[in-house]
């Protein structure tokens, strides 16, 4: 016979187990993908950053961390090897660019060719701001201010308006 108390204790135990499982499962998934042994956590993080930043040349909408293609796997191993040999991040990125071109960079470098790409949006914003500014200036100068529509009534119109308002009050 199971009493109410032990039932509750059982439920608590089950919940505890589930929680443990929830923390443990993602760890095993990670282990299945990555078989690399790193010197320390800093190197592991650099590896994660580099493979996330570099684009797979074969499957173009994935970075080399996510891609399953053989070339991405080769590049992961190459990056791992260079990290273990003590290469800097810049050296590794230069190595990849020298072979696969600027294409592999998800964040293009700032140079003459990419100047428009980096600063173009700000330029467009500036142009937009200037256009808005000029248009509002013009409207205000023309007395065409939408906030004060009474300004563009002629003298006769104004007199008629006052007359109508007065009639209403009666």
């Amino acid at each position: 016979m199971i009493s109410g108390l032990s039932n509750r204790a059982l439920a608590r135990k089950a919940r505890c187990l589930l929680l443990m499982l929830a923390f443990w499962l993602p760890l095993t998934a990670q282990a299945a993908i990555d078989a690399f042994e790193f010197r320390d956590d800093a190197t592991r993080e650099r590896f994660a950053d580099l493979t996330a930043e570099l684009r797979c040349p074969k499957c173009q909408n994935q970075n080399i961390a996510d891609s399953n293609s053989p070339i991405a796997s080769d590049l992961r191993h190459e990056i791992y090897r260079m990290l273990q040999d003590g290469a800097t991040d810049d050296e590794i990125v230069d190595f990849m660019v020298a072979r696969y071109g600027e294409f592999v960079l998800y964040r293009p470098r700032l140079d003459n060719q990419t100047l428009l790409l980096w600063y173009g949006p700000f330029g467009l914003l500036l142009i937009g701001a200037i256009v808005v500014l000029v248009l509002t200036r013009k409207r205000r100068d023309a007395g065409d201010d939408p906030a004060h529509p009474e300004h563009h009534l002629s003298e006769a119109e104004q007199r008629r308006l006052d007359q109508l308002l007065k009639q209403d009050e009666k």
Partner: peptide, 11 residues
Amino acid sequence: GTLGLDLGVYG
């Protein structure tokens, strides 16, 4: 694929 890597072969 070492020479392939140096050549930038991706397929």
